[in-house]
Amino acid sequence: MVEARVEMVAPRHLRDAVVAAVRAAHPYEEPAFDVLELAAWSGSTGSGRVGRLPAATTLAAFARHVAAAVPGTVQGVRFAGDPAGRVERVAVLGGSGDSFFDQVRAAGVDVYVTADLRHHPASEQRERALFDARGGAATPYLVDLAHFASEWPWLTHGASALEADLVALGTTVETRVSTRRTDPWTGRVAGPADAPA
């Protein structure tokens, strides 16, 4: 008889139903299985961060500061909003971030820094900003990075955290952050309408 191993992730509240279904479907009297609960890590930091700049600046100056802080990519750093707009409170999310627009708006930030913003969600966000401005609500400006560049700043922190966790377990370890560029894009052709901000 061929045996297979099956793994799945299920919500905690379905645990009893999943175990009952495994037992009912298994051809043996008592199947071999393990139920592992995913634990929250101490110091778990969530998906992104919200913070305040030491001093307010403009959106254009902030975008230049971001560009100087991340590895250069063919895409560069794009922004959406009034270049002279005031920026002080910032939300940051490494990786693709347009699925978090609702949470970012709820955080009341001036600008949202993330990556891989798709045309329609970003366009709808900016249209909402024009609508919200009439009612005095805050819809943040957008700063869009290449995926690789948006995750790069975290790598040193991740290496340090891993090293600290392993040292706490009595292990000697040396960590190194790779300098390999993983951005897939190798070129960009400027169009006639391209103009620096």
Score class of each variant (00 low, 15 high):
residue 195 A to Y: 03
residue 111 V to Y: 09
residue 166 L to T: 11
residue 51 G to W: 06
residue 88 E to C: 03
residue 162 L to Q: 02
residue 104 V to T: 08
residue 13 H to W: 13
residue 3 E to V: 14
residue 125 Q to H: 15
residue 152 W to C: 08
residue 64 R to V: 04
residue 34 D to C: 04
residue 68 A to R: 08
residue 7 E to A: 10
residue 157 H to K: 14
residue 98 D to I: 07
residue 92 V to R: 05
residue 2 V to Q: 06
residue 20 A to G: 04
residue 47 S to G: 12
residue 166 L to K: 10
residue 62 F to E: 12
residue 194 D to H: 11
residue 100 F to Q: 12
residue 171 T to C: 05
residue 145 L to R: 05
residue 162 L to M: 09
residue 30 E to W: 11
residue 164 A to Q: 06
residue 140 P to V: 03
residue 166 L to N: 05
residue 180 R to V: 15
residue 114 T to F: 12
residue 54 P to S: 14
residue 136 G to Q: 11
residue 159 A to R: 08
residue 46 G to A: 06
residue 170 G to D: 10
residue 180 R to L: 14
residue 169 L to E: 00
residue 113 V to R: 11
residue 85 G to F: 06
residue 110 D to F: 07
residue 71 P to N: 07
residue 128 R to L: 07
residue 138 A to W: 01
residue 65 H to N: 12
residue 59 L to E: 08
residue 72 G to K: 14
residue 131 F to S: 15
residue 114 T to M: 10
residue 135 G to C: 13
residue 129 A to E: 13
residue 184 P to Y: 00
residue 148 F to D: 06
residue 57 T to M: 09
residue 27 P to R: 10
residue 180 R to N: 01
residue 3 E to F: 10
residue 28 Y to H: 04
residue 103 Q to S: 13
residue 69 A to W: 03
residue 133 A to M: 08
residue 188 R to P: 13
residue 91 A to T: 04
residue 3 E to N: 14
residue 25 A to N: 09
residue 182 T to D: 05
residue 57 T to F: 04
residue 17 A to T: 08
residue 196 P to M: 03
residue 63 A to Y: 09
residue 152 W to Q: 11
residue 91 A to C: 03
residue 175 T to A: 12
residue 76 G to N: 00
residue 5 R to K: 13
residue 139 T to E: 01
residue 188 R to G: 08
residue 94 G to F: 05
residue 109 V to E: 04
residue 30 E to L: 09
residue 14 L to T: 09
residue 48 G to C: 08
residue 57 T to K: 14
residue 15 R to D: 02
residue 21 A to D: 08
residue 7 E to G: 06
residue 116 D to W: 11
residue 3 E to D: 09
residue 98 D to V: 06
residue 82 D to R: 07
residue 50 V to D: 02
residue 148 F to A: 10
residue 85 G to V: 05
residue 119 H to I: 01
residue 123 S to V: 01
residue 56 A to F: 07
residue 139 T to L: 05
residue 74 V to T: 02
residue 9 V to P: 00
residue 12 R to S: 12
residue 148 F to S: 11
residue 35 V to H: 02
residue 67 A to V: 05
residue 65 H to W: 13
residue 119 H to C: 03
residue 104 V to W: 03
residue 31 P to T: 11
residue 149 A to V: 07
residue 54 P to E: 05
residue 183 D to S: 10
residue 131 F to N: 14
residue 128 R to I: 00
residue 107 A to S: 13
residue 105 R to W: 13
residue 140 P to K: 04
residue 68 A to H: 07
residue 91 A to D: 02
residue 100 F to R: 10
residue 35 V to A: 04
residue 132 D to P: 13
residue 184 P to W: 08
residue 19 V to H: 10
residue 89 R to D: 10
residue 137 A to E: 15
residue 16 D to M: 01
residue 67 A to L: 02
residue 66 V to F: 05
residue 137 A to I: 03
residue 182 T to F: 13
residue 101 F to D: 01
residue 131 F to C: 15
residue 33 F to R: 06
residue 80 A to G: 00
residue 19 V to I: 06
residue 1 M to L: 15
residue 176 R to N: 09
residue 6 V to Q: 02
residue 106 A to C: 01
residue 68 A to N: 06
